[in-house]
Amino acid sequence: MTDLAAVEALLYQEASFLDRPDLDRWIALYTEDAYYWIPATEDQVDPINHVSHIYDDRVMMEIRRRNFVHPRAASKDSLTRCSHLIGNITLKEQRADGVLLIESTQHVVVWYRDEQRLYAFNALHELKPTGSSFQIKSKRVNLINPEAPQRSLVIYL
């Protein structure tokens, strides 16, 4: 049985960087071949032949990270602050190469443009062991309402 304490510590660390947000330190948690995915439908299997809200590899994460803090990005003039609450952390799978598939339930309150909003999702993290901790190989955010009309979101969840 893998000790989930180190997994929990990593998820809490990621959440704390996103809450501030501090994307420079957040992106350092990810591997060079990582991707970040918010599918547009429930149980979406394919990020390439079906549209997604976000499907970024490391290159697009780097671009988005720079865009989020660019002084000429009008949509980012408003403060963005988040509060992640994480529960139900479960080990779904441990692969032969040591990579863990971790499922969690996350509720994120986002403060943006004079408005407080709630996002709820099931998160799937692929974690690659690095000695005492992990790096994130991928994160999949399964919103409970991916088909609904969405409001502008200018931060990673």
């Binding site: 809200h53 949509s75 409001r151 979101l153 200018v154």
Partner: peptide, 16 residues
């Protein structure tokens, strides 16, 4: 997904 998504990098600046 890059341009038209509510979580994209073009649409939110237009809406703003």
């Amino acid at each position: 997904r890059l341009i038209n998504s509510a979580m994209g990098m073009v649409g939110p600046d237009d809406l703003e």
